[in-house]
């Protein structure tokens, strides 16, 4: 990166990444806000919920952790459950080994803040032509992380004061994944993997149920994709 004024550089970095993150912003503002409100109703005020979002950033696990914070103190269980709920990050890391190579100092933050939505954008969306790849990844990561932390804080502070009915607004995240799935589907060589992902997830959902589906789905996907490798290569 050239030695421009840091404020200008950061402004540019966030501006170029912003459009890609708008759907995430919508979803995170709703879900982060709801998280702050929920924590507050359990007696954990904005300081606690924000601290959790800052350090343990990860939407679904933070919701699970609410249950853990309102029962007998058991940090080992909390640790193991976080590993299991977040096991899908292992796949994200594998998929980003090449993209996150040689990024220097920012790499640590990119890995720290890697979530479903950031992974989806970084792995699917091409950065604008005039933007440094590293700046785009960093901008997306900072913005998504920031939306979540900010929304948590506001939710914790304001409680249940939102003036309109937001039921269903979090569908924005589902819609984002549908769109990014279609973007992946455009490339012919991705279709086998995309179909595998859908089928394995549905099979795991039917057999193991909504709360246990992720890890069986991942194992099934890995087996089929590795089996398909020979077919594709030969």
């Amino acid at each position: 990166m050239s030695k421009t004024n840091p404020a200008v550089r950061w402004g540019r970095l966030l501006r170029t990444a912003f459009p890609a993150t708008v759907p995430v912003m919508t979803g995170f503002l709703v879900l982060g806000f709801a998280y702050g409100v929920l924590m507050d109703t359990k007696g954990y005020g904005p300081l606690w919920s924000t601290l959790m979002s800052l350090l343990a950033f990860g939407g679904s696990m933070q919701y699970v952790a609410i249950t853990l914070l309102t029962t007998v103190f058991d940090p080992i269980q909390a640790f193991l459950l976080s590993v299991m709920v977040n096991a899908r990050h292992l796949f994200y890391g594998l998929a980003l080994l090449e993209k996150y190579k040689g990024l220097g100092k920012v790499r640590g933050f990119l890995i720290f803040a890697l979530c479903d939505e950031t992974f989806s954008l970084v792995s699917t969306v091409e950065p604008p032509a005039d933007v440094d790849r590293k700046d785009f990844y960093l901008g997306v990561s900072i913005l998504n992380y920031g939306y979540w932390v900010l929304a948590t804080a506001v939710g914790g502070l304001m409680g249940d004061l939102i003036p309109f009915d937001t039921t269903g607004l979090d569908f924005a995240l589902t819609a984002l994944f549908v769109v990014l799935f279609m973007e992946q589907w455009k490339k012919r060589e991705n279709r086998f993997a995309g179909a595998t992902g859908i089928v394995c997830a549905v099979v795991a959902l039917v057999i193991f149920g909504a709360e246990q589906m992720v890890i069986p789905a991942m194992i099934l996907m890995a087996v089929i994709l590795l089996g398909g490798r020979k077919r594709v290569c030969s």
């Binding site: 998929a95 992974f119 792995s123 699917t124 994944f177 992946q184 993997a193 089928v199 992720v214």
Partner: peptide, 16 residues
């Protein structure tokens, strides 16, 4: 795996 996982994971996330 790094090459094929993004598309597969996007499918998983939709279902999830």
């Amino acid at each position: 795996l790094g090459k094929v996982l993004p598309a597969a994971v996007m499918g998983l996330l939709v279902v999830y």
